[in-house]
Design a protein around this nucleic acid. Structure first.
Lengths: 172, 172
DNA sequence: TAACGCATGTAATACGTTACATGATTCT
DNA sequence: AGAATCATGTAACGTATTACATGCGTTA
């Protein structure tokens, strides 16, 4: 049940409305977790009932800003330090990359080029995001995670380029 | 609906029983997709009804070996070349690594050391698997994917080591 | 004033996990 | 003979997606 801990974690980093959480899932947490608003609002209600989040402000359009309570922080800490990590993943991109070697060279090349373009664009966005964060002085704690993302992207981009070139060379 | 394509893909690589598929999901596909037998058997039944897989052999303990039909291969190819990739991921490990920077240095170090040990062990197993495959001459098409896994593991292991050391240095 | 983006919620359906259930074959 | 592993299936429950529904505030 990681949705709970993802929400709790995002709220510890920064109090947000449910709507903002939905966007933050796709921004900072895009390659770790995803949740849409129809899942977030009920989860916030459950977390409130469990005393782990609370409304810390109300704004325009009857919006509520949520923050984590001490109980919520304790639960998040317990989960990170004591709970057995669940290692099962679901990553359609990884599945495609595994299976792309079943395709003929021409089609394989096309798919690999598309993936290369996608990851390159993602890396570009991430670099902009990092630059913004650094400029605003709020880089802080999450700088290491962005650095990891950069290194992984570099590996993926290089690999996709190599495999696309190899597929091209194989074409009859 | 990627379970369908994961099953189809595994069966194109190698015809298998439902039981074998469950193990192959956790072996070759562990960091891309997971499915347990209670999901696999019904999916095989649906794929058979759709004419995409067929029984290609029966063995001991009333086991059935399934293989992909031409229609199944076509559907897999269509999915890879034409279907819009779904990029949403769910990766609890990634979520933990993102949130670990909320912890105090001592606890953070402990979590990072545990993760380092886990990924190192995973890398060791993958290397053994690769060596076996190479020795049996069946390395072939999937060698590139194993190479990508190796590079990613290297990046993760180095990063975890650096962050664990940094956390240790921060301890009061 | 119309369109767009912010903001919150629920309902129906699909997907995934855990638990239950059974039986065959191999190994000790 | 008993335990372990192979092998297949279903049922109940929990999680996630898609579709439906509504209203506020800003901007063109």
């Amino acid at each position: 049940m990681s949705l709970r801990h993802a929400v709790l974690g995002l709220l510890v980093v920064q109090p947000s409305t449910g709507y903002e959480l939905a966007r933050r899932f796709d921004a900072s947490l895009a390659n770790a977790w995803h949740a849409s608003h129809s899942q977030i609002y009920p989860e916030l209600a459950k977390l409130e009932a469990a005393g782990m989040v609370e409304v810390v402000g109300e704004g325009a359009r009857r919006s509520k800003t949520w923050g984590a309570t001490d109980a919520g922080r304790r639960e998040l800490r317990r989960w990170m330090t004591e709970a057995e990590p669940v290692r099962t993943q679901r990553n359609e991109t990884g599945l495609r990359w595994f299976l792309v070697f079943l395709l003929e060279p021409a089609e394989r090349q096309a798919v690999l080029e598309r993936e290369w373009a996608y990851i390159s664009a993602e890396a570009r966005e991430r670099r902009e995001f990092t630059a913004q964060l650094d400029a605003s002085g709020r880089g802080g704690a999450f700088r290491p995670v962005l650095d990891l993302a950069e290194r992984m992207e570099t590996v993926m981009i290089d690999w996709l380029r190599e495999q696309a070139d190899a597929a091209e060379a194989e074409r009859p």
